[in-house]
Nucleic acid binder design. Structure first.
Lengths: 189, 189
DNA sequence: GTCTATATAAAGATAGAC
DNA sequence: GTCTATCTTTATATAGAC
């Protein structure tokens, strides 16, 4: 539709509800109430409910991608440090904001075909960054195994944290990132 | 309600739809059609839609628990072999059957409070088996790290396979289990 | 850009016959 | 145990005034 600041703000609020309730359980009336408007007004900003989801997921993936690029640019040291920085950045977008990135991961299946086609290149770009960091770690002998499987296992371990992580608990996203890297690293490297 | 063989069969069919479409998107009419009956007849077997979900999740968790117990009883060798056997069993219930265990993991949040209370002990028993196997591996020096975090990272890596695994691809659940154990094992152990 | 009012469709669930 | 028929509620989405 458009790309106004208003729409950005509404998208941000929608993300929060989608995380809390899930996309299917979130009604347009709930969304409108969260935004402080009536349900009819919502459709001035978005064509339909699907478009809200697409906007949230686009925002979440773009943000994660931008942060990951920045992280890798700033952290130009060992493969271990870079892997740790990526894991930390990933966890922070998932666990601290608790927003659009979570929706991008957990509600991707709810996108219609057109939206998936439009957004898959963003997701692919983000995953490509991960594979690059994994490759570096493999090449350095920090970790071992199949490139494809290691990437997916690591992403799985990280993404599943959304299900059990307690923000009020003793562990920070950085703690988790450190422990994960330690878990898969060969101590002899 | 009851526990007839008929109800068991209907539960099995419901599981398949819940995996394919997700619980919220699966309508009682879809369920009825899959079962070869009309939607009104469904409520002879289940009080409401929630009860179908609870039946599926109970079945999925009980089955996973039974298989895990059997696996650990039969595999009484090294901590590495036991860890591998558990991972393999877990992946097979998720990826080969593609059924009730997937629903148990991915639709748990959709259970109402009463059902969660009733089923959480089953889930806890299953997770306790995992922690036991993780503990053995830690004690043997096969893996390193925090007991709690290692368990959750491993479960995350395994559970996330549902999202990307291709049953028609070259890798078997056993391949995945082997690679995962290799990824987290210290080669010096 | 937001409102009220409402159209339209689909959902979960029930009643009573067979 | 299954059917048909239907009630009731709730959902997405639209139209037109302000």
């Amino acid at each position: 539709m458009n790309d106004s600041p208003r729409r950005k703000e509404l998208t941000r609020q929608a993300a929060q509800l989608f995380v809390q309730e899930g996309f299917d359980r979130t009604t347009v009336r709930m969304l409108a109430q969260e935004m402080g408007i009536k349900s009819g007004s919502l459709f001035h900003h978005f064509r339909d409910k699907q478009e809200i989801l697409a906007a949230v997921i686009e925002e979440g993936t773009q943000n994660a991608l931008a942060i990951a690029r920045e992280t890798l640019q700033q952290c130009d040291s060992t493969p271990e440090a870079r892997l740790h920085a990526m894991a930390r950045a990933h966890l922070e977008t998932l666990l601290t904001d608790r927003n659009a990135h979570v929706v991008a991961l957990y509600e991707w299946r709810r996108l219609d075909t057109a939206a998936r086609d439009h957004l898959s290149h963003l997701r692919d770009a983000y995953e490509a960054l991960w594979e690059q960091v994994i490759d570096e770690a493999l090449a350095a002998g920090l970790i071992h195994g199949d490139r494809f499987l290691v990437s997916r296992f690591v992403m799985g371990a990280l993404n599943w944290t959304v299900r059990w992580y307690d923000p009020s608990g003793p562990r920070s996203p950085e703690d988790l990132a450190r422990e994960l890297v330690a878990m898969i690293s060969s101590p002899t490297a």
